[in-house]
Design a protein around this nucleic acid. Sequence first.
DNA 1: TTCTGTACTTAGGAGCGACACC
DNA 2: GGTGTCGCTCCTAAGTACAGAA
Length: 575
Amino acid sequence: MRALSQGSFSCYNYRWEEERYTDGSKWKFLEHKGPVFAPPYEPLPSNVKFYYDGKHMKLSPQAEEVATFFAKMLDHEYTTKEVFRNNFFKDWKKEMTPEEKSKITNLSKCDFTEMSEYFKAQTEARKQMSKEEKQKIKEENERIVQEYGFCVMDNHKERIANFRIEPPGLFRGRGDHPKMGMLKRRIRPEDVIINCSKDSKHPKPPPGTKWKEVRHDNKVTWLVSWTENIQGSIKYIMLNPSSRIKGEKDWQKYETARRLKKCVDQIRAQYRDDWKSKEMRIRQRAVALYFIDKLALRAGNEKEEGETADTVGCCSLRVEHIKLYPELNGQEFVVEFDFLGKDSIRYYNTIPVEKRVFKNLQLFLENKQPEDDLFDRLNTSILNKHLQELMDGLTAKVFRTYNASITLQQQLKELTCPEDNTPAKILSYNRANRAVAILCNHQRAPPKTFEKSMQNLQSKIDAKKDQLADARRELKSAKADAKVRKDEKTKKAVETKKKAVQRIEEQLMKLEVQATDREENKQIALGTSKLNYLDPRITVAWCKKWNVTIEKIYNKTQREKFAWAIDMADKDFEF
DNA sequence: TTCTGTACTTAGGAGCGACACC
DNA sequence: GGTGTCGCTCCTAAGTACAGAA
């Protein structure tokens, strides 16, 4: 592997040698066409009516548009939630004319069903379109991608990730979000900041409009930004993961994690030592770091109360999120974690910890209320400052990357049997991947059709087993036949039957492997760790070592994102 | 030190199209 | 040809991190 600092980087699209910028610039030249805006609102046909308190009411276009957002979500349980309904109604009223506002005073008296039916019919009609019509739409989409989906950054044509501006609609937060149902307003050119280089052809705003600003900031990587109205945060249009700028950043991330590998033993020794510190803040820091390292918890930045769902990470854990058991199920010093993490995904885990950690936790809990911070002398900024002193570039999240990648490597070593066939090897890979997903708590809702699809697979397996039994019987009788007759023809028949048995055995095994894999994956999402935490070079090396084609592990998008790794890792790569 | 704003990464789910199967 | 299944892509929310102002 080449050194990062040399900046040489050649893969499918990149066959060049160039210096990295050392002054913090991200590019010298940047040219693009600007964003694609959401299509304008098309008023409903006059036969699609809205009713208030049982009576037809024609809505003004603005009020109607917002009403359609609600109508489109009618089947979702969101619309039954109190918070959602209140937020929606409040924002909807802001879009009404004074007359509408005075009439429509109760959301429960609003009847959106005709609108809802109309949109369902439209979806259905879209499905029923002829091949030609569908092809035409596809081509039009393709044209837009060709025009707006690419930019030029320093001599390279690059794919843009999200060149379409988010359309207006109702905000759907995750979990118990206090702002769910609020109106996410339409973004206009006047809201948009364009970033490109001075000497590029600047994107043109749609006729009759202006950009909010055109700037030329090459210290950042984004092309377009705007401020959304729900949280007041900035949204960006950036490049695709396959781009040079994202690929290098990704590479750098894994290189930082590999540097941690070299000093992690020392860091662990130190935080263990710090459990004994005289200073409370150091003990807290040391215990938090232990959790981040051992359990791959997220850092846990503070959040503004009431602005978002109530979720926590390590530094923001509260007393109510852990329980201490001096003894539980035959194990000593057990900590039970139960809290909502990112995306309101529940983290539940009981783990035995060392006595010192346990005693420290007892100390941290003393005289506190359930809603008090567990680590009251600590936040992510303090923790990261400390980590920075231990290793250049070290932050809390590097531990997640490091532990994920090292786990994959170890698990692959442990689980891969050289004599296994390819499907079995892939099962081992998925199991190693799964170990990481479990560590990182990457969950998914079990697919709605899970039970059924499992049953289907099982009946396929049963059918295959029957088929195998038949084939074996046939083989047996062929053998008996051959023993009696002893001629070429019957001998040949035995060989054919033997092959058939073998083939069916292989098919059966493949199905069984598939069933195991699927069952074990019911509530676990492998994609997130594959995409964000596992050094792709580990995977590339494993594929090369065991002659598994990379296509079996990475799909096209993933191969594009990891082109740098596919290009540079050989079978001996060690994380 | 705390707060705020900004930039960028990480996350799960919806929806859609390809493909297998009947 | 119709239907069910599944993987992929897109979408955008929700994190982390850090700089600079207050």
